[in-house]
């Protein structure tokens, strides 16, 4: 790419500017990667040293007592995420199917896609107060169910867009072959197109899952948090990010320790799913299927 065979009077100046710009680009890359590495090193250093079996098996101890864990928060996050997925995954995939298979290129599909993108950008705290006034206020109490619904709604736009993208990667010949055999459209979509794209669709769901797993803001006024074991959908429930948030702002070292450990658990979950997504989209699992 570097063809500087050129004979102008200001050639020297241009070469200097060229190198300067290249240097700045490299520098900014380093500056961007540095905080990421710093965050990871601190998480590993602080989190790994405070991660133990008790973290996964015990509920928090009262202030002043050492030990304890976040087991109830892990359970709570699990329940919230299950509710969220039950709501978000089917609707998200269905909307994605509509975009890729039925509405492709139509004006309606463009508007839906656009709305999904915009919904994706709505701040999570706004989602939190919307669900609060929709569910919590009429019911007059915080509940796990409302938290799960908030998370589910936040999953929809991500899943819709990844499903659409993955379905678009399926070659047209596959669809035509199925339809040519006389398979009805709905079956062709479900068991041929969607199946071909399933590794991608599943990882898209995992990505959305991982994103909402770390969401705190929508849970503040819906799931609310709970220091005790609870699996009741009608009661406030603990969640890992909420617990980290509360513990990080507390004045106790013991709680800070737990917050780091909790963050490490969250990050591991997220890194694994992001890597999976990347593996599927770049290694061409889909291409192999066609």
């Amino acid at each position: 790419m570097t063809q500087t065979k050129f004979s102008a009077a200001n050639r020297f100046r241009r070469t200097v500017v060229n190198h300067l710009a290249s240097g700045l680009a490299v520098l900014s890359t380093i500056l961007v990667v540095a905080p990421l590495i710093a965050i990871f090193i601190y998480l590993l250093y602080k989190g790994a040293s405070s991660l133990n079996l008790a973290f996964f098996t015990q509920a928090p101890k009262p202030v002043g007592e050492s030990g304890g864990g976040m087991a109830n928060a892990i359970l709570g996050s699990g329940i919230l995420l299950i509710i969220g997925s039950l709501l978000g995954v089917p609707i998200g995939i269905a909307a994605g199917i509509f975009l890729a298979e039925y509405g492709r290129g139509s004006k309606l599909a463009n508007i839906v896609r656009f709305t999904a993108d915009v919904l994706n950008g709505v701040p999570s705290i706004v989602m939190g107060i919307a669900i609060y006034s929709l569910i919590v206020l009429p019911q007059k109490h915080f509940s796990a169910l409302s938290g799960g619904i908030a998370l589910g709604i936040m999953m929809i736009p991500t899943i819709t867009r990844t499903t659409e993208e993955m379905l678009l990667m399926v070659p047209h010949a596959v669809r035509e072959a199925a339809l040519g055999l006389g398979v009805p459209t709905w079956r062709a979509v479900l068991s041929i197109t969607l199946r071909t794209a399933s590794p991608g669709v599943i990882t898209g769901c995992m990505l959305a899952f991982a994103r909402v797993a770390g969401e705190t803001a929508p849970l503040l006024f819906t799931a609310f948090g709970n220091n005790f074991w609870s699996a009741n959908l009608n009661e406030p429930i603990a969640a890992l990010p909420l617990q980290i948030y509360v513990y990080a702002l507390s004045p106790y070292d013991e709680w800070h320790r737990l917050a780091w450990a909790g963050s490490l658990v969250l990050i591991v979950l997220i890194v694994v799913s992001v890597s999976l997504v990347r593996y599927v989209t770049t290694r061409g699992v889909l291409k192999g299927a066609s």
Partner: peptide, 9 residues
């Protein structure tokens, strides 16, 4: 993909 609470921490 890092959650905002981890950035906060």
């Amino acid at each position: 993909a890092i959650p905002s609470v981890v950035y906060g921490l």
